[in-house]
Amino acid sequence: MTYRRGSLAVQRRVGVREAAEHVGRSVGSGIRDIAAAFLAQQPFLVVGAADEGGRLWASQLTGPPGFVRATGAHRITVSGGVPEGDPLAGVLAAPGTAVGTIALDPRTRRRMRLNGVVDAGGGGGSAAGASGAAGRFSVEAEQVFSNCPKYLQKRQPLALEPEGAGVVRRGGSLTPGQEGYVRAADTFFIATTADGGVEASHRGGFPGFVEVRSPYELSWPDYPGNAMFLTLGNLATDPRAGLLFPHWESGALLQLSGRAQTEYAADGSRTVRFTVEAVIESRHPGRLRWSGPEYSPANPPVAAAPGGDHRGSTTR
């Protein structure tokens, strides 16, 4: 794998270049049979991209298993389109759009990432068509790889919710209810970009690992991972980011777009600060509902908040 300049800079700063080179050898552009089979079993896919105005977002697309599938050695096709009102509804049909995707299976704690560009021959149709039920788009893969199950909470599917109001609230900052939503989260997805490419990645921990500093600012610790530093590397080059907080039990989604930066402490720890610029809360028809979590054994304890309010725990 050829790392982008930002990732190389972070790897050198943290002292993991040798480990990153080793991990990078597992990244390819081809979709192996085992990866194709994994994709065909998934009921949702997270996609990161920039909207028409350049804001970065992470969106969740859902459908019956098979709605996302490998249609070639270097290509996936997503059927069913993007939910009406989603910020990426107008761009995922545009050939050449850079996207990052992540398929995550809460049942097995497995995940797979695929980055590439929307394929002109993918049958996406017009931008308007991408937001309809018959919408479809394909992605020509440039990077395909799996991640370890670290910080993934285990869940079981409950039901598909056929009814919903679609987008229920748009804003430029978090409401008190949305702040509570974020504080209770044990999982979110983050889309980042640099040098013309986009990544979609996962972050997990005990509830409280994401701190709400104000209606306009969040922060979270950067837990040890695979040494690649793709997300932090992108942020070192381009601060734009999109966050997706799924509410697993109801299937509701909270999408945030803004800018992020990484702070490096003297003890080697890292914290990411995110400034909120746009907020979309939605309850789309056809959303997935999941059980409560079986927390990952890798989740670090969450420190007590100011005033002694301990957020999170080391037990379920």
Results as ranks from 00 to 15, higher is better:
G164V: 01
G164C: 01
G164D: 02
G166S: 01
G166C: 11
V167E: 11
V167W: 06
V168G: 09
V168A: 07
R169W: 15
R170I: 10
G172K: 08
G172R: 12
S173N: 07
L174N: 03
L174A: 01
T175V: 10
P176D: 14
P176A: 10
P176M: 06
G177I: 02
G177C: 00
G177K: 00
Q178P: 03
Q178A: 04
Q178S: 04
Q178F: 02
E179H: 03
E179D: 06
G180H: 11
G180N: 12
Y181C: 01
V182Y: 06
R183D: 10
R183Y: 08
A184M: 13
A184I: 05
A185L: 09
A185K: 02
D186H: 10
T187M: 11
T187S: 15
T187C: 14
F188P: 00
F188S: 01
F189E: 04
F189N: 04
F189S: 07
I190Y: 09
A191G: 12
T192F: 06
T193V: 11
T193P: 05
T193C: 05
D195M: 09
V198L: 01
V198E: 00
V198P: 02
A200L: 14
A200Y: 03
S201Q: 11
S201I: 12
R203L: 04
G204M: 08
G204Y: 13
G205C: 05
G205W: 07
F206W: 12
P207C: 00
P207D: 04
P207E: 03
G208V: 08
F209H: 15
F209K: 05
F209G: 12
F209Y: 15
V210Q: 03
V210M: 06
E211H: 15
E211M: 06
V212Q: 00
S214N: 04
S214Q: 06
S214T: 10
P215T: 06
P215V: 02
P215R: 05
Y216M: 08
Y216W: 11
Y216D: 15
Y216F: 09
E217T: 13
E217L: 11
L218G: 05
S219A: 15
W220V: 01
W220N: 00
W220R: 05
P221K: 13
P221E: 13
D222S: 03
Y223H: 11
Y223P: 01
P224A: 12
G225D: 15
M228N: 14
M228P: 08
M228W: 02
L230K: 00
L230A: 12
L230M: 13
L230F: 15
L230W: 08
T231S: 11
L232T: 12
G233C: 01
G233Y: 07
N234M: 02
N234S: 02
N234Q: 03
L235M: 07
A236M: 10
T237C: 08
D238P: 04
D238R: 03
P239M: 08
R240G: 14
R240P: 09
G242Q: 11
G242S: 12
G242W: 13
L243C: 11
L244A: 13
L244Q: 14
F245G: 03
P246L: 06
P246W: 10
P246F: 11
H247A: 13
H247K: 12
H247V: 10
